[in-house]
Protein backbone atom coordinates (compact mmCIF):
# COMPACT_ATOMS: atom_id res chain seq x y z
CA UNK A 1 0.00 0.00 0.00
CA UNK A 2 1.11 3.52 -0.66
CA UNK A 3 -0.24 4.39 2.74
CA UNK A 4 -1.49 7.82 3.66
CA UNK A 5 0.84 9.70 1.38
CA UNK A 6 -0.91 11.53 -1.43
CA UNK A 7 -0.38 9.88 -4.77
CA UNK A 8 1.67 12.05 -7.04
CA UNK A 9 1.10 12.09 -10.78
CA UNK A 10 3.35 13.65 -13.41
CA UNK A 11 1.43 14.85 -16.46
CA UNK A 12 3.28 15.76 -19.64
CA UNK A 13 1.54 17.59 -22.47
CA UNK A 14 2.46 20.46 -24.77
CA UNK A 15 -1.05 21.86 -24.61
CA UNK A 16 -1.75 24.14 -21.69
CA UNK A 17 -5.43 23.37 -22.13
CA UNK A 18 -4.78 19.71 -21.63
CA UNK A 19 -2.45 20.35 -18.69
CA UNK A 20 -5.14 22.49 -17.13
CA UNK A 21 -7.78 19.83 -17.54
CA UNK A 22 -5.50 17.10 -16.22
CA UNK A 23 -4.60 19.20 -13.21
CA UNK A 24 -8.21 20.01 -12.47
CA UNK A 25 -9.38 16.44 -12.83
CA UNK A 26 -6.55 14.91 -10.84
CA UNK A 27 -6.37 17.49 -8.08
CA UNK A 28 -10.15 17.29 -7.79
CA UNK A 29 -9.72 13.58 -7.15
CA UNK A 30 -7.13 14.25 -4.46
CA UNK A 31 -3.93 13.59 -6.37
CA UNK A 32 -0.79 15.66 -6.17
CA UNK A 33 0.00 16.86 -9.70
CA UNK A 34 3.32 17.92 -11.22
CA UNK A 35 3.58 18.86 -14.87
CA UNK A 36 5.94 18.99 -17.82
CA UNK A 37 5.34 20.69 -21.14
CA UNK A 38 7.07 18.27 -23.48
CA UNK A 39 9.14 15.12 -23.32
CA UNK A 40 12.39 16.88 -22.51
CA UNK A 41 10.85 19.07 -19.84
CA UNK A 42 8.88 16.08 -18.52
CA UNK A 43 12.11 14.18 -17.95
CA UNK A 44 13.62 17.16 -16.15
CA UNK A 45 10.58 17.49 -13.92
CA UNK A 46 10.66 13.77 -13.25
CA UNK A 47 14.29 13.80 -12.23
CA UNK A 48 13.88 16.86 -10.05
CA UNK A 49 10.72 15.57 -8.38
CA UNK A 50 10.88 14.76 -4.71
CA UNK A 51 9.12 12.53 -4.00
CA UNK A 52 9.09 10.97 -7.44
CA UNK A 53 5.66 10.55 -9.05
CA UNK A 54 3.70 7.33 -8.62
CA UNK A 55 2.45 7.49 -12.19
CA UNK A 56 3.05 9.43 -15.37
CA UNK A 57 0.46 10.52 -17.89
CA UNK A 58 1.90 11.70 -21.19
CA UNK A 59 0.70 13.00 -24.52
CA UNK A 60 2.20 11.40 -27.63
CA UNK A 61 2.57 14.21 -30.09
CA UNK A 62 4.84 16.85 -28.57
CA UNK A 63 7.71 19.02 -29.75
CA UNK A 64 11.34 18.29 -28.84
CA UNK A 65 10.64 14.80 -27.49
CA UNK A 66 7.43 12.93 -28.14
CA UNK A 67 5.59 10.61 -25.77
CA UNK A 68 7.23 7.49 -27.14
CA UNK A 69 10.63 9.03 -26.61
CA UNK A 70 9.74 9.98 -23.07
CA UNK A 71 8.55 6.48 -22.22
CA UNK A 72 11.67 4.90 -23.66
CA UNK A 73 13.84 7.35 -21.73
CA UNK A 74 12.02 6.71 -18.44
CA UNK A 75 12.28 2.95 -18.91
CA UNK A 76 16.04 3.33 -19.26
CA UNK A 77 16.40 5.17 -15.95
CA UNK A 78 16.88 2.63 -13.21
CA UNK A 79 15.22 4.55 -10.44
CA UNK A 80 12.15 5.41 -12.53
CA UNK A 81 11.62 2.45 -14.84
CA UNK A 82 9.00 0.87 -12.61
CA UNK A 83 6.72 3.91 -12.78
CA UNK A 84 3.49 3.20 -14.63
CA UNK A 85 3.11 5.43 -17.68
CA UNK A 86 -0.25 6.10 -19.24
CA UNK A 87 -0.39 7.53 -22.71
CA UNK A 88 -2.97 10.12 -23.70
CA UNK A 89 -4.04 9.72 -27.26
CA UNK A 90 -6.78 10.88 -29.58
CA UNK A 91 -5.90 8.12 -31.94
CA UNK A 92 -7.63 4.95 -30.95
CA UNK A 93 -6.21 2.82 -33.70
CA UNK A 94 -4.45 -0.40 -32.74
CA UNK A 95 -1.24 0.73 -34.43
CA UNK A 96 -0.75 3.58 -31.94
CA UNK A 97 -1.51 1.30 -29.04
CA UNK A 98 1.00 -1.20 -30.30
CA UNK A 99 3.65 1.49 -30.57
CA UNK A 100 2.91 2.74 -27.10
CA UNK A 101 3.18 -0.79 -25.79
CA UNK A 102 6.41 -1.41 -27.59
CA UNK A 103 7.84 1.76 -26.13
CA UNK A 104 6.91 0.54 -22.67
CA UNK A 105 3.65 2.30 -21.89
CA UNK A 106 1.57 0.73 -19.17
CA UNK A 107 -1.73 1.77 -20.67
CA UNK A 108 -3.57 4.48 -22.48
CA UNK A 109 -6.45 6.89 -22.18
CA UNK A 110 -8.29 8.17 -25.18
CA UNK A 111 -8.88 11.89 -25.41
CA UNK A 112 -11.17 13.51 -24.63
CA UNK A 113 -11.22 11.87 -21.27
CA UNK A 114 -13.69 12.20 -18.46
CA UNK A 115 -12.52 12.74 -14.92
CA UNK A 116 -13.88 9.30 -14.08
CA UNK A 117 -11.96 7.55 -16.81
CA UNK A 118 -8.79 9.39 -15.89
CA UNK A 119 -9.09 8.56 -12.22
CA UNK A 120 -10.00 4.97 -13.05
CA UNK A 121 -6.84 4.70 -15.12
CA UNK A 122 -4.67 6.15 -12.36
CA UNK A 123 -6.32 3.93 -9.81
CA UNK A 124 -5.72 0.98 -12.06
CA UNK A 125 -1.96 1.53 -11.79
CA UNK A 126 -1.54 3.08 -8.35
CA UNK A 127 -4.29 1.72 -6.13
Amino acid sequence: MVGKRTIRVLTVDDSRTMLGMLRKALEGAGYDVIQGEDGVNGLEVLQAANPPPDAIITDINMPRMDGFGLIEAVRKLDQFRHIPIIVLTTESDPEKKARARAAGATGWIIKPFSTDSLVAAIRRVTA
Binding site: D14, S15, T17, M18, M21, N61, P63, K111, P112, F113
Partner: peptide
Amino acid sequence: INAVFRAVHSIKGGAAS
Protein backbone atom coordinates in the same frame (compact mmCIF):
# COMPACT_ATOMS: atom_id res chain seq x y z
CA ILE B 1 5.37 19.41 -41.11
CA ASN B 2 5.17 18.04 -37.60
CA ALA B 3 4.59 21.49 -36.17
CA VAL B 4 1.79 22.10 -38.64
CA PHE B 5 0.23 18.78 -37.83
CA ARG B 6 0.60 19.30 -34.11
CA ALA B 7 -1.09 22.68 -34.27
CA VAL B 8 -4.27 21.26 -35.79
CA HIS B 9 -4.04 18.17 -33.65
CA SER B 10 -3.85 20.26 -30.49
CA ILE B 11 -6.81 22.38 -31.45
CA LYS B 12 -8.80 19.28 -32.19
CA GLY B 13 -7.86 17.63 -28.93
CA GLY B 14 -8.78 20.64 -26.83
CA ALA B 15 -11.96 21.30 -28.75
CA ALA B 16 -13.07 17.74 -28.19
CA SER B 17 -12.63 18.17 -24.46
